[in-house]
């Protein structure tokens, strides 16, 4: 697996579409235990990413991710904006100047993104946030890479782990973000940010390897 800037822009483009298609689902997850705007916010953000990257020449993966991060910071708002924005900015920082990235880079990028999210939001695993999807995904990617599995296998493992993380949020009591106001009442609902995180990762896989093989 080697992704160049042009392909990355295509992936981000596709993410905008997928978020749009899943806007209602994300909003409904957020409505149950938050304020019901996550899908709306994310969709606005990724449309801004698309707009921002329209004329990018694709020469620098780091710059592409930074632009995406800035677009997210400047357009999503709410909690998800600074969190996803920081994630993309941090991911971009570790691949500055690179024309292409491979699965090892992806692991670095995800690691750095997760650090950024934690730094910004002070959430830990089990707080019922996007961290729960990201943490599982990173661990799976890490194990699979370490075991020498193929990039496709590794990324597939990350996607599956992200969805597992998402599922796990269902039984958690929220301790960060708006859902935390509900305390015990947040149990039984999946976290919206974890869902958007898993969805983004799945879209990356689908763009790289096709939806059939997923």
């Amino acid at each position: 697996m080697v992704v160049n800037g042009k392909k990355l822009i295509e992936i981000l483009d596709r993410i905008a579409d997928v978020i749009e298609e899943n806007k209602l689902m994300l909003t409904e997850l957020d409505a149950a235990i938050g304020d019901g705007d996550h899908g709306i916010n994310m969709s606005r953000g990724f449309h801004a990413v698309r707009e921002k990257l329209k004329d990018d020449d694709g020469s620098d993966i780091g710059i592409i991710l930074k632009k995406a991060g800035m677009a997210l910071v400047s357009n999503v708002g709410g909690a998800a904006g600074p969190l996803y924005g920081t994630a993309f900015l941090k991911a971009g920082a570790v691949v500055e100047g690179k024309q292409t990235v491979d699965v090892a880079d992806l692991e670095n990028m995800l690691k750095s993104a997760l650090e950024g999210i934690k730094m910004r939001g002070h959430a830990e695993p089990k707080d019922k946030t996007m961290v729960d999807a990201a943490e599982e995904a990173l661990n799976a990617l890490n194990s699979s890479n370490a075991a020498g599995e193929s990039p496709q296998q590794a990324i597939k493992a990350a996607v599956d782990a992200a969805y597992l993380g998402l599922e796990n949020t269902k039984d958690m009591i929220a301790r960060k973000g708006r859902a935390s106001y509900l305390a015990e009442r947040s149990i039984g609902h999946k976290d919206a940010g974890a869902a958007s995180f898993a969805l983004i990762l799945k879209t990356i896989f689908d763009e790289l390897y096709g939806q059939e093989s997923s």
């Binding site: 705007d37 709306i40 916010n41 606005r44 910071v73 400047s74 708002g77 909690a79 904006g81």
Partner: peptide, 11 residues
């Protein structure tokens, strides 16, 4: 003034 019920962005 952010969007409805959504914090404004830093800009």
């Amino acid at each position: 003034c952010g969007n409805v019920f959504t914090s404004p962005t830093p800009d």
